[in-house]
């Protein structure tokens, strides 16, 4: 489970830092730190989203052939991927910024897991009833990664595109990641936008999951 994210991180690091020698103004030599601070939380989120879409069919035998509380199943990707990436990021952040960074990383990752919770329930239901979403997810997630400031700094975007940083919740989450681990600047909007989205999704997602439960045992 650890090999895939480690190799992905290493491959992009090799490409961007060693081959292309990407350097950001004002961040001389700090690219690796910037890149890992964005990439590790992103990999965790994208893996949890991807796995959530397939989690109900994956564990169908568990709840269709034995009595198992359904509400626990969407927590599986959250806990499994979360467990791996929180520990990796804790160590990486310690290497980048010492204890302060490591504690910031821990706070960030736990916050992200809490933020992802309603999405896990929502995607578990959507993925079960609309199976094609699981095929579509990798493309959407790759697109999202490139339109979120993970491999580049937000200021690298052209002026005409800055509005996108305001509406993209992942851009705000990345800003929080860099603030907590690397001590960079952040604004209250970085908390308000993802927080508002979380509040909007929370109740409908849990209600949808609750109402879908009797259907889940019959869906396959």
């Amino acid at each position: 489970m650890l090999v895939q994210p480690t190799l992905q991180v290493a491959a992009l690091w090799f490409l961007l830092d060693i081959v292309l020698k990407v350097r950001f103004p004002g961040m001389e030599g700090g690219f690796v730190g910037y890149y890992l601070t964005g990439m590790l939380p992103w990999l965790m989120m994208s893996e949890i989203i991807q796995r959530s879409l397939g989690v109900m069919p994956e564990y169908a035998a568990l709840y269709q052939r034995s009595v198992f509380p359904l509400f626990l199943i969407p927590l599986v990707p959250l806990l499994v991927s979360g467990g791996i990436y929180v520990s990796i990021f804790f160590i990486v952040a310690f290497l980048i910024s010492g204890w302060a960074g490591a504690l910031g990383a821990l706070l960030l990752m736990l916050g992200l897991l809490l933020w992802l919770l309603p999405f896990c329930y929502l995607l578990a239901v959507l993925g079960l009833f609309v199976r094609d979403l699981q095929q579509l997810a990798p493309f959407v997630l790759t697109m999202l990664m490139y339109v979120t400031p993970i491999l580049y700094v937000p200021s690298a975007l052209p002026q005409s595109m800055t509005w996108w940083l305001q509406v993209n919740p992942f851009a705000h989450l990345m800003a929080l990641a860099h603030a907590l681990v690397q001590g960079q600047a952040w604004t209250w909007w970085n908390l308000v936008v993802p927080g508002a989205l979380w509040l909007v999704v929370l109740l409908p997602a849990l209600a949808l999951f609750y109402r879908a439960q009797p259907h889940m045992r019959e869906a396959l």
């Binding site: 239901v125 009833f129 609309v130 199976r131 949808l208 109402r211 879908a212 259907h215 019959e218 869906a219």
Partner: peptide, 15 residues
């Protein structure tokens, strides 16, 4: 049992 033409119909009905 409820029979649906497509899984999406089930989702719409739940929602």
């Amino acid at each position: 049992y409820s029979l649906y033409k497509h899984g999406f119909d089930r989702l719409l009905e739940i929602a």
